[in-house]
Amino acid sequence: MIRLIRADFSRLFMDKIFYIALIFNFGFAAFIGITRYFDSLEYHHYINIPDDFLFVGTEYIGIVIAILSAAFIGTDYSCGTIRNKLTSGHRRISIYFSELLTNIAAAVMIYLAFMAAVCLLAALGFTADFKNDIRDIVKTIFILIPSIAAFAALFTAIDLPIASRSASLIVGVCLALGMIISVSALKFHLSAEEYRQLPVEVTEYGNEPMTEPQYEKNPAYVDGAKRKVYQAVYDILPNGQLLDINEAVIYYELDKFDGKKQMLFAFGEIIVFTAAGLFIFSKRDIR
């Protein structure tokens, strides 16, 4: 398998799409950091670039990984070079793990490019240093890696059995977008208050009446079994995990953040996605 990993990594470092993704992520982080910094000067509100933006990129990282994985694995199919690997006496399991490890490494490097841009902005004097404890930040980065790896494992499990670059791309991007939308919707329901205040009627002079505020049950709020299901799905989806990390950093709540649970879910997903993908890939007829 070492031979395959070596071959796949050298191909990754020759891959234009990988460099485009690196530059895009670096540039995008720099762009949002700088624009938000100048906005903060104009509107006199406080932003803290390293803490506020370090993990923002996790919100769309799934789409980037989907594209990169489809391009990288799909090339082996579109060029037929996966046949060379099999004919050379490599087992399918070795091919699978080699592609998976390369995908994970690429995904992590791409996210590191985003973080590098944020840190560079901070070093260049755009607002203050980290407000969170730097040791917590480093620890969070290590917690983040399995969640990013879970994305890579998911798209590897899709792309290797699909065996078509264009089909992988469509399925991967649609799935990544679907996950973003699902997580947003779940977050909306899970963070909704149980009761919401009714609108207050003001007097003809514009004053609020001297009565107690009235509340009603919030229809967006979910409870019971439904809430448990929503929470479980949210926890399972890699975006959900990444969103939690991001919020914990932004709201300086890393001390309350359950990193172990996060990592447990992420590693569980990697195992499940890889087992499923490997099972289908090992049964697949390759043309």
Partner: peptide, 23 residues
């Protein structure tokens, strides 16, 4: 098998190097 299995974005030498690594 059927069509040559080669990376289109690489040169002939790079393709051979890649196969050397695979082997």
């Amino acid at each position: 098998i059927e069509t040559p299995s080669v990376y289109l974005s690489m040169t002939a030498r790079e393709n051979l190097k890649q196969q050397y690594r695979v082997l």
